[in-house]
Design a protein around this nucleic acid. Sequence first.
DNA 1: CTTGACATTCGAACTAGTTAGTACATTTTA
DNA 2: TAAAATGTACTAACTAGTTCGAATGTCAAG
Lengths: 220, 220
Amino acid sequence: MAERQGNGRKNDPQRTQEDILAVATEEFSTHGLAGARVDAIAERTRTSKRMIYYYFGSKEGLYLAVLERSYRRIRTLEADLELANLPPEMALRTLIETTFDHDESNPDFVRLVSIENIHHAAHMLRSEAIRELNVSVIQMIEGIIARGLADGTFRRKADPIDVHMLISAFCFFRVSNRYTFGTIFRRDLSEKATIERHRSMIADAVISYLKSPEGGPAST
Amino acid sequence: MAERQGNGRKNDPQRTQEDILAVATEEFSTHGLAGARVDAIAERTRTSKRMIYYYFGSKEGLYLAVLERSYRRIRTLEADLELANLPPEMALRTLIETTFDHDESNPDFVRLVSIENIHHAAHMLRSEAIRELNVSVIQMIEGIIARGLADGTFRRKADPIDVHMLISAFCFFRVSNRYTFGTIFRRDLSEKATIERHRSMIADAVISYLKSPEGGPAST
DNA sequence: CTTGACATTCGAACTAGTTAGTACATTTTA
DNA sequence: TAAAATGTACTAACTAGTTCGAATGTCAAG
C-alpha cells in the first residue's frame, strides 16, 4: 500500500555519520562542550538523536569524534607543500602563510582547540590519532633553519618547536581572540586589509628574528 | 543563652563577595560558563548559594562580575611601569616581559578570556568597565616606537595595535594553549628554562622586527 | 545609650525546566 | 532471517533559580 509515505529511505551510514559530525562541529565550537546541546544537534541533522547515540555512544564520544575529524583535516594541508626546493627565506614565508591561511579559514578548528584547552586537553590525551600529529611541521622548520644557517640567510640557531610556537601563536590568536581583541580595540580583524597586513607581519617578524644574531638584537 | 551556638557572625559584605568571586573565578575558569555549577561554587564558599543570588542575581551576573574583577586587576600593573625614561629598546623589552610575566602568573585570567571568546565576547560587550581598558598599553607602545624611529633604533613604522597583538598573541598562547601544545609536542611549558627562553625570544622577535627595514627583511 | 530601619546572613526544602541517555518498535539491507 | 539502521516517545537525573521564615549585625538619629 501507499501507507508508507514512500520517503524512500536509503541506509547510508557514512553519510549519516558525516552529517552528524558536521553539525556537531558547529554546535560544539560555538557553545563549548558543556554548552552544546545534543538535542540541538539532532534537530539540525537529517537524522535523529537516536543515531547520535547509536554511532557515538555519548555526548563526549561525539565531541571526541569531532575533535579527531578536525585534526585529521589539517594533516593533509602541510604535507602538500614542496618547500625543499625553495630558498630558506622563501620556504619559511610560504610555510607561515599556509599556517596563517589555515587558521583564518578554519575558525571552527581554532575554537575547538581553545575548548579542548579549557578542559586541559583531557580528551586529546585519550586519542592516539591526534597526538601523533604535527611532527612533520617541526621537521620542515628544522630543515629550513639548517639550510638558512648553512647559506648565511639566518644567523640564529633557534629551536624549531619554539619557532613553530611563535608562528602558531600569532596565527591562532588572531582567530581565537578575535572577539575580545576586536571589542577592546574596536578593530575588525576580518577586514581584508588587516588580514594582509598581519599575514606579512608575522612572516617578517619570524624571519627578522632568525636573521638577527644570537645574542639578541640588542647587541647589533 | 547558649542557644545560639555563638558562631560569632560578623557582617562583612565585602569579604563575602570577594570570597564568592574568588571561588567562582576558579570554577568558571576550569569549567567554562555552561560547565560551571553554581552549587559547586556555593559549596566551596564560606557562605551559601542564597548569598550568591543575593549579591549577583544570576549565574551570568556572577560570571560577569568575575570577568570584570579579572580585568580590573591587570589595569594596575601596566600603569606602574616607568618606561619614558628608558631608551626605546629597553623600554619595549621591559613592557614585553611584563606582559609575559602577567599571563604566565595569571592562568585563570587567560582562561576566562578564552571562554569569553567562545561566547563571542557577548558579556564583555555589556560591560563599560572592561572596554575602556588597555588603551594605555597602546599609547605606551606608540610612544616607544616613535622615540625609536627618531633616534634610529628602529626602522619600521609599525602600527602599535599590531605590535601589541604580536606580543599578546605569544604570551597569551603559551598559557591558553599550554595543554594541547604540550600534549602534541611533549613539552612542559611551565619549566623554568623554557619560560626564560620564551621570555627573551618574544622580546628579541619583536625588537628585531622593528629594527628591520620597512620593505620586509627580504630586501635586506 | 536606645531605638528602629535596613542590610546581611543562615539554611534548607522546593520547583520548574532542561537534558543526556534509553526502551521499544520498525524498516532496510544482504 | 538476521543484522544493521532508523524513528518516536519516554525517563531519570540534574540544575538554575526561588521561597519561606527567620536571626543577627550596623548605623544614624533621637
